[in-house]
Design a protein around this nucleic acid. Structure first.
Lengths: 225, 225, 225, 225
DNA sequence: AATGAATGAGGGTTCATTCAT
DNA sequence: TATGAATGAACCCTCATTCAT
């Protein structure tokens, strides 16, 4: 089975620990810390839910706690503050997404297919978790400060993978040599990102994954030598 | 004169009145209400400045008032509330930008050149006013509610123009017929938007306008039949 | 009339402005700023009342506001924070007390009489305003940080006056030359302070001013050459 | 040996049990409960340390627990609540101090020497344990409620001893008969107390014990017939 | 007895908005 | 119109205390 099943596509918000809270165990699917990991994940899920519904600034920590089924104060045992919730969602999800991306891309040889799979994974991951998608497309774009962090860390990793596909494609003669891979990577990310935002804001009244081909068609038929 | 001069590129935030405040006269370059119009504009400029620096949610209305050189209460004579400031910035600027876009595109016949000019104008407008650019790329993306309004009104107009260029190009045989103009319009907008965001977040350490050609190269060499 | 009347003895908490709030006019008994000065004084009185009843740490700013007849937020227009309330009470009252002390002592020639009047004024001032007395004897002694400030500023002034009386008395041969005026000043302050504290904690079930003579008797009959 | 050695001067905070916690054994120097007594003492020492550093209100029970090397919850096995920690420090230390005072005074015949030794012991005890001194001079003075308890119990005992010295001195003709021993006792306590407070707040930049003579000189040369 | 994760009440402070002048 | 003092609702976070283990 080439493509992961839908259920697999959902980004599991597991206990990749928030850096702010060192006491917590990191790995999720282990045996021991199951309990507290559950709580960490529950709070993160609660935050995604509440942030998606109310927006980060309007969301109250108390709502997050309630959504997670814990007391208000418990949130602060797992996260430094409200901000840390947002950062942790981002880091956790993005780390997981990038890891999966990297792994699945390794199994594909053809740069064009890699590119297509890249887009597919991008769309699938967010389409599978609508609340997370809202948080990703809207709530993360809050403040310059936050977005700078966003760009510098995980997004950089994302763009790097994209760039590497393009460069490998150029070396193999699959893509035009006179393209700046950095620029093209941003262009592609921008396009994919906009499709998702559009889908989120349209209240999901169209399907995202079917757009992989039309979108990639635009790019590939320009990138190909 | 083909290309507008730099000074022309700056989007003038003039007194296109906020819809929310009926008492105010709308058109700016008229005669009578000059005085109060100045105040309207001053507050809007103040808001852009403060929102760009502090972010919408952290910005205080009092700061906006101070930046505009008016009393706190005066803000509420021209704008319904804090939200209205953001909305008004968006509407005012976007209306002006779209009008200019429409006007300048009308003077260009070749669809490819139109597309190129479209991108150029997009970049130029924002590069010419860095504070406005911050507000556009970051602060507008705040809440789903806000972004929905964003998409449905002015952005729709922007995308419509883009679509029309594409469709005209398809009719003239300049662009491939088997492309979905709606999708391509979003793809292009997404790409341009991402370039600007990237430029904003990189603290403007590169020039935006020189990217018009590389970016359009990607699209054109895929869009052309 | 030698001694000020009781009503005069009450320390008027007037608008000696809190340093933290520069916008406020300082002088109280002037004409113009009557209004805001009233508010400043009202809040200070409210704070004295509430701090006396509940203790500083248990007192809620909201209670102070209510006692002063203003909204919660108004407190922060006149004072930087809750701490500033305590500091301002201290500075305002102490400045006024020291000024009065200095003025009245100037009218007395005999060092022994000065000392007696010093004690009398100390007792009278606090006996006349029981709530203020509680705040002075109990609430000010809160934290080392606060007490250090307490000692270094206004108390220093108080002790200086005491020391000067003693030194002048030594020069005139009224007091023994082989006494360390600094030590004796502290000893006398400590004694007076303890009497007041005792009176406060005994719920005022004895009169303070009658103790002037017995207490000073202890000191004078040791200080006299 | 008349004067206790320095090392003897330190008030040992031992397991005089908090009245509030009935489950605990009271006497310290017994055999059985040694273990838990260690813990009781450790927590009390931790409390003194932390209260001295941060002040009672800013101190966290968790800090006390950490300073004592026990878990947060353990504090509540030995003390009813945070308040009880303060009360227990006071009771424990004061009981020990008064006992020692009583015992050592019994060995002295001359009322003047008794008075001198009284002051010396007061100074020595606190000078030997700076953290305890901070707690005694500052943290105990927190709330009227607390201070009332303070005055009524242990301080009363302290003042009683002082009064008895004075009265005995009067009977023996060592002190003037026309003095009110109650007043003089308070005056002396106030003076000694102020010296210690001063020393605490000056960050101990002078020696306390050398002040015994100058201070007592002031009193004795007034009290003596 | 001992632990320490979990609780949840509580409050200082901010700031958008109003309104008397 | 314009002002800016006054308002008061709203919320993040802390931390004393509990209790299952």
């Amino acid at each position: 089975m080439k493509a992961p099943k839908k259920s697999d596509a959902r980004l599991k918000v597991v206990g990749k620990a928030s850096k702010a809270v060192s006491k917590r165990a990191v790995v999720s699917d282990e045996k021991g810390s199951e309990k507290s990991n559950d709580k960490f994940s529950a709070i993160l899920r609660g935050a995604i839910q509440v942030f998606a519904r109310s927006g980060y600034f309007n969301a109250k920590v108390a709502e997050v706690a309630r959504a997670a089924g814990v007391a208000d104060g418990t949130v602060y045992l797992y996260f430094k503050n409200k901000d840390d919730l947002l950062v942790s969602i981002f880091n956790t999800v993005m780390a997981e997404f990038n890891a999966r991306l990297r792994q699945e891309l390794a199994a594909i040889a053809d740069p064009q297919q890699q590119l297509r799979h890249f887009a597919k994974l991008h769309f699938e991951s967010l389409e599978a978790d609508r609340e997370l998608a809202v948080v990703f497309q809207v709530e993360f774009r809050h403040s310059t400060k936050f977005m700078e962090q966003f760009s510098e860390t995980m997004l950089a990793d994302y763009l790097k993978m994209l760039r590497e596909i393009l460069e490998r494609g150029q070396q193999q003669g699959a893509f035009r040599a006179n393209l700046n891979p950095k620029v093209v990577a941003k262009v592609i990310f921008g396009a994919l990102d906009e499709m998702v935002t559009n889908w989120v804001l349209s209240h999901h009244n169209f399907k995202l994954t079917p757009l992989v081909d039309p979108v990639m068609d635009v790019f590939l038929n320009g990138i190909e030598a």
